[in-house]
């Protein structure tokens, strides 16, 4: 503390001045950390461990783009399955028919409570348990179903909340125009519900993108590798972790634009309220 402030009576500092001082201290600590990092971290060692240029080059030219496409394919398919099934489950949860509600509740509680990785393993082994069963587009089909069934449970609850957020008057207006209950749901309620839940569903997509890395637990041929599996295999081969780091950063290509989009959508929804 400088003598000037020590002399000044404390009580005279306004809340705004106090807040300013606290902020200055925070900035100071941050700056100090950066300086320490620059001084004590050996940049070359970090680079050769995590970002070896020749390995980056290898990864980018040897299959990483394919692994990226596989990750996108696994995620998109699982999301489609989850969205479709989740919508059906949400409508079942809100149904007048009690057995539908029970079924949906049991499904949702089961798949929300069980680790996705186990569901995925179980699904890949399904043909063993049920001889003659062939899941189409294998291994993609197994992944879509395995991850989709789990994410459907989460999406169902989100979509249910969205449906319930649509004012009751919307259904009344639709019904009073002679629309059947199903028509009112399809044309009036669901379009509004999906608009409400687009941000949380996009977050679900981001989570699913990362969960797609779980596919390593089922036996994959090299051309079906996702980003993580690809990165690990290559890192093992060359005894350098750079490919895995690059694979990890590749997820951001999908997730960052999406989270950015969600933030914009949420801001727009907040404005229109």
């Amino acid at each position: 503390m400088t003598t000037a402030t020590a002399v000044a009576p404390r009580a005279k500092r306004s809340p705004r001045q106090r807040a300013q001082r606290i902020r200055m201290v925070q900035y100071g600590v941050l700056a100090l950390l950066v300086v320490l990092a620059v001084l004590f971290i050996d940049g070359r060692a970090v680079t050769s461990t995590f970002f070896r240029p020749d390995m980056v080059q290898k990864a980018l030219t040897q299959g990483l783009p394919f692994a990226f496409l596989n990750t996108v394919a696994y995620t998109a398919g699982a999301f489609a399955v989850g969205l479709l099934l989740g919508t059906v489950l949400a409508l079942m949860r809100l149904s007048q028919v009690a057995p539908y509600r029970w079924l949906a509740t049991i499904y949702i509680e089961f798949f929300r409570g069980v680790p996705a990785i186990i569901v995925l393993i179980a699904f890949s082994l399904m043909p063993l348990a049920l001889p003659g069963l062939r899941i189409p587009f294998d291994p993609y089909g197994s992944v879509w179903l395995g991850l989709g069934l789990v994410s459907a449970a989460y999406m169902a609850e989100t979509i249910r909340a969205g449906i319930q957020a649509v004012p009751k008057g919307q259904v009344e207006a639709a019904r009073s125009l002679g629309m059947s209950s199903g028509l009112a749901t399809r044309r009036i309620v669901l379009p509004q519900a999906f608009r409400i839940v687009t941000p949380p569903l996009t977050n679900e997509f981001v989570a699913l993108t990362k969960d797609s890395s779980l596919v390593y637990v089922i036996g994959l041929t090299a051309d079906a590798y996702d980003l993580t599996k690809y990165g690990r295999a290559m890192s093992n081969t060359y005894a350098n972790i750079t490919p895995l780091v690059i694979a990890g950063l590749s997820y951001l290509v999908v997730t960052l634009p999406l989270t950015f989009l969600v933030r914009k959508m949420e801001a727009r929804q907040a404005r229109s309220k």
């Binding site: 004012p167 919307q170 207006a173 019904r175 125009l177 002679g178 059947s180």
Partner: peptide, 29 residues
């Protein structure tokens, strides 16, 4: 549903469909 088409209903809170334009509100049914 058919009998309801014979009766127009106007609500206190309007209950227009917010995802449709004024025109689409009128045409959808």
């Amino acid at each position: 549903d058919r009998l309801r088409t014979l009766m127009g209903m106007v609500f206190q809170s309007f209950n227009l469909f917010p995802h449709l334009t004024a025109l689409e509100n009128c045409t959808i049914a």
